[in-house]
Design a protein around this nucleic acid. Structure first.
Length: 896
DNA sequence: ATGCTCACG
DNA sequence: ACGTACGTGAGCATG
């Protein structure tokens, strides 16, 4: 029976793989310093091209270690000599490429004196004679000379996962010649990459023309004298020897003496064990997850063995009964997990839950009436039973919906994983477990995603899935806590993030009341203004168009009206505010467009957007604070985002009138830290000048202005000087660059540079600290906040200037922004405790990075103000005092 | 799905 | 020479 033989040109594909992902070179490095870009691309190639082919025989041929040892080196001393040396980043990946080939079940082969081409040429002829079907995959066009009716060459196009299929017909169509003539084509043109010449001035076009006329090299030279006189004729005659030498160099050997035969290259299919070992070594997290969750491997001995192993990882998930619950209720430590139909746990449906530990095993159920069972209620609510969860905040809210109050949480795997490393955290259990060497199915594999999301009905698939999650969480606790200890993050977890998660859960569940009528009315007014603006804009433009479309707007402004292009984006003209403001004096239409933009944004995002997420049961919005997302330790807020409600313009700020207390005779109260980031910076660096300014409670931007403009201590500062100094202070916090400052202030770069230099002279300790933190980042690969919150900077040693500079600015900014985040988180926990201890009715509703918003009865306001202010300003002891300002009123508008 | 723009700290 | 200010989320247009 005819077999399918796959022959792969290892060198040319590896080269392609390396350059296909060259841009990613600096990002793809293992902790041990090994570059993996070519390995990643080669693995993609093996998975997406080779695996689906299911060949009977397969071999990856490699060039012998030195090209000079082949007959071609003897024939022509400069053979391949002009070629750039393979970069070290490429060479170091070679041993792993061979290991990868083996793990995928293919054979490697190389032989001294031969190139990969010759191995492939010889085997292709052997296969052909045996009546088999041969497929060759390469990035080198030379190999197309081997094409016959039984031998196909697949040539990689862009990258390594797209190929062009060369058959005799295709070659005829494409070039008008036969595969055998490819050699003579090469003889005429030579090969620049292998560094041998053909005939002078003959390129692909001329060569093909000549071959069509004369068919082959011998016939051409037999008739060369008869050609009419031309430069080309001269060249052909002069370079005859070169052409014949090129012909020899280009000819692939098809009768080499190989030490292997077809019997030795039977394709075995992927070997799971080998792949796992390799992927772990290379830190291929995605590939590992895919491997473990989709069981993409066909049946063979290896896979069967591995799947036994996989089952060994997880215990059988048992049915949850009243009897089982009675037993579970006596345990000291249990894992618990609920799966839902969506991310928004305020409204998502609950699918199934699981509970268990390593002693009693794991139990899964879809019967939520079990939450009436007294043992289960006790397990959830009794502090003495230590629970292990993934995302305690989500579970607190879900259980709250079931009428229970979650207590006794010991381990939140999501929080711990986030504290250990924020990089690449997608908040998904299967991904994070993979970091600890535990592999379980993705939710997507069980439920599907998007429109295809469905809860599978068959058997106990879902119960198994949640059960495995519970077991994973249970099993990972000790290891995760150990890592936390190594990072000195026990305090950050136990005393800050975990308690905070319950403070946040309560804030979210409580919600912020929205006056929908007021919001709707504002929307109507905006609509009227928008309509009239639109009318005027169309009139001025002389046509109707979609003002929201940056493309259409760009066409109008820069092509039809001929306004100057100030800035471009990747895809066209920029129409951002900063650009439009510069154009406004030249064209009155631009002011209208700016007004339109502002109103359209307010209407769609803050009126329509907010109204769409108000819970009709209680007329409140219930945001979710994402506690494990930002790279710095800040919170973020979604559905809706309550951290970007307008403030800076009056028209926008009016939106805050719609945020009201949940009871009559209550008020909204807001307290915010003044200049917390600069105070943190002063404290961390211990800079005496800045410390002095804060201790004396001076206007920090005015004080900075005096310093950078070289004015005496009590000199008056004008508004422009203060504005400049403020921008410099911002720049310092962000990890300053003269370029960034010049752009922000719209000044020359050298002026910006001068400001920065003066600043660093006046605040020398800040300069010292900036240098020191960058140095630390280069040394350790991470930076830390005052509470040991850690941010890794994988790009800190990148070769690319921009990539590296970005990481350096991040190294300077993250400890500042992150320490400020630490401080307000501590304050939130202490405020929450103090409010409870004093028996106040006040409730915290929102955190906006340096600001806390509450609602409270009017008669509690002054008590609350005193309590919150004192707790916030004493939340941590810094070298610099913290300052808190506060405001109150009938809506959020007044409370700031 | 991606890019642009703009809302906040 | 390089050509970016730090951290977020949402809506819209577009391919």
């Amino acid at each position: 029976m005819s077999k399918k033989i796959l022959l792969i040109d290892g060198n040319s594909l590896a080269f392609r793989a390396f350059y296909a992902m060259y841009q990613q070179l600096d990002r793809m490095v293992t902790p041990e310093g090994l570059h993996t870009n070519a390995l990643v691309a080669f693995n993609n190639f093996l998975e997406s091209i080779v695996l689906p082919m299911q060949p009977d025989l397969a071999l990856v041929a490699w060039d012998a270690r030195s090209g000079k040892e082949t007959f071609r080196g003897d024939l022509y001393a400069d053979y391949k000599s002009g070629r750039d040396k393979a970069p070290a980043e490429f060479k170091e990946q070679f041993p792993y490429l061979r290991e990868m080939v083996e793990a995928h079940g293919l054979h490697n082969y190389e032989q001294i004196g031969l190139e990969a081409d010759d191995i492939i040429g010889t085997l292709s002829r052997i296969g052909q004679k045996a009546g088999d079907e041969v497929i060759i995959i390469t990035g080198d066009q030379d190999l197309t000379q081997l094409v016959t009716d039984h031998v196909t060459v697949k040539l990689t196009k862009k990258g390594v996962t797209q190929v062009e299929v060369y058959t005799p017909d295709f070659i005829m169509e494409q070039f008008g010649i036969t595969p055998e003539q490819i050699i003579d084509k090469k003889a005429l043109t030579g090969d620049t990459s292998d560094n041998y010449p053909g005939v002078t001035k003959v390129g692909e076009k001329t060569a093909l023309k000549l071959l069509k006329e004369y068919h082959d090299l011998d016939n051409l030279y037999a008739h060369v004298e008869a050609m009419k006189p031309s430069k080309m004729k001269e060249n052909l005659i002069n370079d005859k020897d070169q052409a014949y030498r090129a012909q020899k160099l280009a000819t692939i050997i098809t009768d080499a003496d190989l030490s292997i035969g077809l019997d030795d290259i039977v394709y075995a299919g992927p070997k799971e064990k080998g792949l796992v070992t390799l992927f772990e070594k290379l830190h291929f997290r995605q590939a590992l997850n895919k491997l473990r969750s989709q069981s993409l491997l066909p049946d063979d001995g290896q896979a069967a063995e591995a799947s036994e192993q996989k089952q060994g990882n997880f215990q059988e998930v048992k049915e949850l009964t009243d009897v089982a619950l009675a037993k579970l209720g006596k345990e000291k430590s249990l894992a618990f997990h609920i799966d839902t139909t969506g991310d928004n746990y305020h409204q998502a449906d609950m699918i199934a839950f699981a509970i268990g530990n390593d002693q009693l095993g794991y139990f899964g159920s879809r019967d939520f009436t079990l939450f009436d069972n007294e043992h289960l209620r006790q397990i959830i609510e009794d502090k003495s039973i230590q629970l292990r969860l993934f995302n305690a905040k989500a579970h607190w809210v879900l259980l709250h919906r079931l009428g229970l109050t979650l207590a006794g949480v010991d381990f939140d795997f999501l929080l711990v994983a986030y504290l250990l490393d924020t990089v690449g955290n997608d908040n998904v259990l299967s991904t994070l477990a993979g970091r600890f060497g535990r592999y379980l199915a993705d939710d997507e594999a069980i439920y599907g995603k998007g429109a295809k999301f469905a809860v599978p009905d068959e058997g106990r698939i879902v119960e198994e899935h949640v059960g495995h999650k519970a077991q994973t969480v249970f099993d990972l606790r000790d290891q995760a806590f150990e890592d936390l200890d190594k990072h000195e993050q026990g305090h950050l977890y136990h005393d800050i993030e975990l308690p905070l998660s319950f403070v946040l859960a309560k804030m979210e569940a409580r919600g912020f009341t929205v006056n929908e009528d007021r919001l709707a009315k504002m929307g109507q007014e905006m609509d009227e203004q928008i309509a009239s603006l639109k009318e005027e804009i169309f009139q001025m433009a002389g046509e109707e168009f979609n003002i929201n479309s940056t493309k259409q707007l760009g066409t109008l402004l820069f092509e039809k009206m001929g306004l100057p292009v100030i800035k471009k984006t990747k895809t066209g003209y920029s129409t951002a505010v900063e650009v439009l403001e510069k154009l406004a004096p030249q064209a009155p239409i631009v002011d209208h467009i700016l007004s339109y933009r502002q109103l359209a944004k307010l209407k769609s995002t803050y009126v329509d957007g907010l109204l769409a997420v108000v819970d009709q049961a209680d007329h409140k919005v219930h945001t979710r604070f994402l506690q494990t997302l930002t790279q710095t330790g800040r919170l973020s807020s979604v559905d809706p985002n309550l951290q970007n409600i307008p403030m800076r313009t009056e028209a926008g700020r009016k939106i805050r009138h719609a945020f009201v207390p949940s009871h009559d005779d209550w008020v909204i109260f807001g307290a915010d830290y003044s200049q917390i980031e600069l105070r943190v910076l002063a404290s961390i660096t211990g800079d005496p000048a800045m410390e002095h300014a804060f201790v004396e409670d001076e206007d920090i931007h005015a004080e900075t202005a005096r310093k950078v403009f070289g004015l005496p201590d009590d000199a008056p500062i004008d508004a422009d000087q203060r504005r400049t100094a403020k921008a410099v202070n911002f720049g310092i916090v962000y990890g300053i660059s003269d370029y960034g400052l010049s752009k922000n202030l719209n000044i020359a770069r050298k002026d910006a540079k001068a400001f920065i230099e003066t600043y660093f002279q006046e605040f020398p300790r800040i300069h010292q600290w900036m240098e020191q933190i960058k140095e630390k980042a280069h040394q350790d690969g991470f930076v830390e906040t005052i509470e040991h919150r850690r941010r890794y900077l994988p790009d800190i040693n990148a070769k690319n200037f921009n990539t590296r500079s970005f990481a350096e600015r991040t190294a300077m900014n993250s400890p500042i922004q992150g320490s400020a985040a630490d401080i307000i988180k501590i304050a939130m926990i202490k405020v929450s405790d103090a409010v409870e201890e004093k028996g106040l009715h006040a409730r915290m509703l929102v955190q906006v990075h340096d600001e806390l918003v509450f609602e409270c009865p009017k008669d509690e306001l002054e008590t609350l103000r005193r309590t919150v202010t004192s707790v916030m300003d004493s939340a941590v002891q810094l070298a610099i005092p913290l300052k808190v300002e506060s405001h109150a009123g009938p809506t959020w508008y007044e409370a700031k």
